[in-house]
Each structure stands twice: as C-alpha cells, then as structure tokens.
C-alpha cells in the first residue's frame, strides 16, 4: 500500500507559476476568461498565494503554491451527503465526478479553499480541444473538482509496476506540477517508503504543514526556514 504525499520547498519556490499552468494543461482545466475570472470562477487545482509583510523598504513577499492537501482526516469528505468525495486507500482524497450533485458543502468546509466548482459547463474554443489529455476524466457543469495528485499518472505507473511485479519506485510517479518545477521545489512520493525523498524531506526541521492546528493532517508538507506565519 502506498501513501502519496508532496513536499513543497518554499525556500526554493520563486512563485513562477509553472506548476499552475502545467496542472491546468495536464488536467484539461479550461481557463475562465476575464469576466468569469473576476467572479472567481477560475479553477486552479494548483493555486498561487502571495503574502506581503512589512513596508517599503524592508518588506518580505512569499509565494505559496496550494494544491489539495489530501488531508488525512479531511473535513471535506465527511460533509458530502452523497459521498461523491472520499479518501482512497492510498490517501488521495478523490472526487467522483459522476456522483457529485453539486451541494458544495465540501467546498465551504475545505479550510484550504482548494475545491473548485464548475459554474458553467467546462468549455474551450475548438482549436484548443485537440490539446486535451485523454487520461483525465471529463467534468460537467454543476460538479466540484480539485487536485487529485495526478491520479491518472499514478494509475499508469501502477499498471507498469504490476506488469513487472514490483512496487512503484521512488520518483517514478511525478505529477505535472512537480515535473515542471524549474527550481525543483516540489517533491512527490510515497510516505510509506522510509527511503523516499518525500519521507526524508517531511522529517526535515524546516518542514511544517498549513493550519496544523485544525488537525486536518495534510499530506502536503512545506519547507521553510524559520518561523512560519499564516493568515
């Protein structure tokens, strides 16, 4: 059994947002367009958050990439009346699109606000449609979606591993965001494997998780020098 997890090194991250675009391209997430974006209808499974502290001339600015934290006890799943979202055995909080009826209680109960709703039927200009990834499932209007650790890539790796009768190797599954990250800030892997990079990094003294106080037990770890302030 695997336990997928992600580590994001904020000391490396430069807020370039390559992960953001990579995620959208990989998971067929249409852009919202100016009007819709202003109304908050842009979907960013990987979302970029900025924090500014201080005033000119001594100020700090941090960028924090926010995927779904795949919480170990996710507030989002228990509130779904029809169990359209659930914690799968490998720790991924999966979204069952066909089951979702769009109550959006999961959205309001996700403290990290990383769940996104299809306010309209997801659509593209025809030209872009050719560039869609066949591995990810279609979404329709009126349902919720979110980062799923590129579950389709994991599945592919599993098939290969199964054929070769072995476990997936460390670094064999790489989500789109991690794959493109220019500064190597994102690491992905299996927490059950004590030799994996994520495992080691997650034990680093720099490691922390967002809003630990909520007890959601996120499985996305962040690395940052020194004290961390959120909010």
């Amino acid at each position: 059994m695997y336990r997928w997890a992600m580590v994001i090194d904020l000391d490396r991250c430069t807020g370039c947002q390559a992960c953001v675009v990579a995620c959208r391209q990989e998971n067929n997430i249409p852009f919202a367009g100016e009007k819709q974006a202003k109304l908050g209808r842009a979907k960013f499974w990987m979302n970029m958050i900025r924090e500014i502290e201080g005033d000119y001339p001594d100020l700090k600015m941090h960028f924090i990439p926010i995927p779904c934290m795949q919480c170990d006890n996710p507030p989002c799943t228990i509130v779904c009346p029809v169990r359209a979202t659930y914690k799968n055995p490998e720790g991924i909080v999966a979204q069952v699109y066909p089951r979702c009826i769009g109550v959006r209680m999961c959205i309001s109960n996700c403290p990290y606000t990383v769940r996104y709703f299809n306010w309209h039927a997801p659509d593209w200009p025809n030209e872009y449609k050719r560039g869609r990834n066949p591995d990810v499932y279609k979404r329709r209007k009126g349902i919720t979606e979110k980062c799923n650790f590129c579950i389709h890539r994991i599945r592919k790796a599993k098939e290969v591993a199964k054929k070769e009768k072995r476990r997936i190797r460390d670094g064999e599954v790489v989500p789109a965001c991690a794959e493109t990250c220019p500064t190597d800030a994102i690491t992905f892997g299996d927490l059950n494997d004590p030799k994996s990079r994520v495992y080691l990094l997650s034990k680093s003294p720099r490691a922390f998780r967002l809003m630990e106080e909520l007890g959601t037990e996120p499985r996305v770890f962040y690395l940052k020098q020194g004290e961390w302030k959120d909010g």
Binding site: C16, Q17, A18, V20, V21, A22, Q25, T180, P182, D184
Partner: peptide, 10 residues
Amino acid sequence: RLCPKGQAGL
C-alpha cells in the same frame, strides 16, 4: 523543466 510560458506553449 519549463516555466509557465513554456507550459502554455500549446
């Protein structure tokens, strides 16, 4: 690696 512009190339 690619930057966001690279990723948006398509």
